[in-house]
Structures are given as C-alpha cells and as structure tokens.
Amino acid sequence: NQESVVAAVLIPINTALTVGMMTTRVVSPTGIPAEDIPRLISMQVNQVVPMGTTLMPDMVKGYAP
C-alpha cells in the first residue's frame, strides 16, 4: 500500500508547505504520494487543510501529478 501525504497540523489557506506540516499515512482514497514531499515544500495550499486531512493534488497550487 502506498503512503499518501497527510496534514500533520492545521494548514491555513495560502500557506507555503514545510516538512513539519506534512506526515504520511496509508489512506483511502490515496492522495499525493509520500515521495512527492520534496516537491511540495514551498508550494501553497489553496484551501484550509485540517489536521489529518489527506492532501489531494487539487489542494496544492501548481502541483501536477
């Protein structure tokens, strides 16, 4: 099972992602793959992401799977 990126904290809208904001977990449905965390650093979320929420591609500005 592939791990997906999950919010480790509440991430406010338009916040640039940092390593500490993200964790990984096997979830269903799957979100952004864990191995993409290095690509996500400094990208901004386009909505509020509650802690424990799986990051989906459409939540991150400029992210393309």
Rank of each mutant, 00 (worst) to 15 (best):
N1T: 15
N1H: 11
N1R: 05
Q2V: 09
E3Q: 14
E3G: 15
E3Y: 11
E3T: 12
S4T: 05
S4H: 02
S4F: 05
V5R: 00
V5E: 00
V5M: 02
V6M: 12
V6C: 03
V6Y: 03
V6L: 09
V6P: 00
V6G: 02
A7W: 02
A7K: 00
A7E: 00
A7Y: 01
A8S: 12
A8I: 13
A8D: 14
A8V: 09
A8T: 07
A8P: 01
V9M: 13
V9F: 14
L10H: 12
L10T: 14
L10K: 08
L10W: 11
L10I: 10
L10S: 14
I11N: 01
I11C: 02
I11E: 00
I11L: 09
P12I: 03
P12S: 08
P12A: 14
P12K: 10
P12Q: 08
I13W: 11
N14Q: 10
N14R: 11
N14W: 12
N14K: 09
T15S: 08
T15D: 08
A16T: 14
A16D: 06
L17N: 00
L17R: 00
L17K: 00
L17H: 00
L17C: 01
L17F: 02
T18M: 04
T18Q: 14
T18P: 00
V19Q: 07
V19I: 09
V19H: 11
V19D: 08
G20W: 05
G20V: 07
G20L: 13
G20C: 04
G20N: 13
G20P: 10
M21V: 08
M21W: 03
M22I: 05
M22R: 00
M22C: 03
M22W: 03
M22V: 10
T23N: 09
T23L: 15
T23G: 15
T23H: 10
T23Q: 11
T23V: 09
T24Y: 08
T24R: 14
R25E: 08
R25L: 08
V26C: 03
V26G: 09
V26P: 13
V26E: 06
V26T: 08
V27G: 10
V27H: 04
V27K: 07
V27A: 08
V27L: 06
V27Q: 12
S28N: 14
S28Q: 15
P29L: 10
P29H: 15
T30A: 07
T30Y: 11
T30V: 15
T30M: 10
T30K: 11
G31R: 05
G31V: 06
G31H: 02
G31M: 04
G31W: 02
I32H: 01
I32E: 01
I32W: 03
I32S: 01
I32N: 02
I32T: 02
I32D: 01
I32L: 05
P33W: 07
P33D: 05
A34P: 10
A34R: 12
A34T: 06
A34H: 06
E35C: 03
E35L: 14
E35D: 10
E35R: 14
E35Q: 15
E35W: 09
E35I: 14
D36N: 12
D36I: 09
D36F: 13
D36A: 15
I37D: 01
I37V: 07
I37F: 11
I37M: 10
I37Q: 14
I37L: 07
I37N: 02
I37W: 11
P38Y: 06
P38S: 11
P38Q: 11
P38R: 13
R39Y: 12
R39Q: 07
R39H: 12
R39N: 13
R39F: 11
R39P: 02
L40E: 00
L40H: 01
L40C: 03
I41P: 02
I41F: 10
I41G: 03
I41Y: 06
I41A: 11
S42L: 11
S42H: 07
S42R: 10
M43H: 07
M43W: 07
M43Y: 10
Q44R: 14
Q44G: 06
V45Y: 00
V45N: 02
V45R: 00
N46T: 11
N46G: 04
N46Q: 15
N46M: 09
N46D: 07
N46A: 15
Q47W: 04
Q47S: 09
Q47V: 14
V48N: 12
V49A: 04
V49K: 01
V49I: 13
V49L: 13
V49R: 02
P50L: 09
P50G: 07
P50D: 07
P50W: 07
M51E: 15
G52Q: 05
G52P: 01
G52D: 09
T53C: 03
T53Q: 07
T53N: 15
T53V: 13
T54Y: 03
T54L: 06
T54V: 11
L55Y: 00
L55K: 01
M56P: 00
M56Q: 15
M56I: 07
M56Y: 08
P57A: 14
P57Q: 08
D58L: 11
D58C: 04
D58I: 12
M59D: 03
M59H: 10
M59E: 01
V60A: 01
V60E: 01
K61P: 07
K61T: 12
K61D: 15
K61Q: 10
K61G: 11
K61I: 12
K61Y: 09
G62Y: 11
G62K: 09
G62E: 08
Y63C: 03
Y63I: 09
A64C: 04
P65C: 04
P65K: 02
P65V: 14
P65G: 14
P65W: 03
P65I: 10
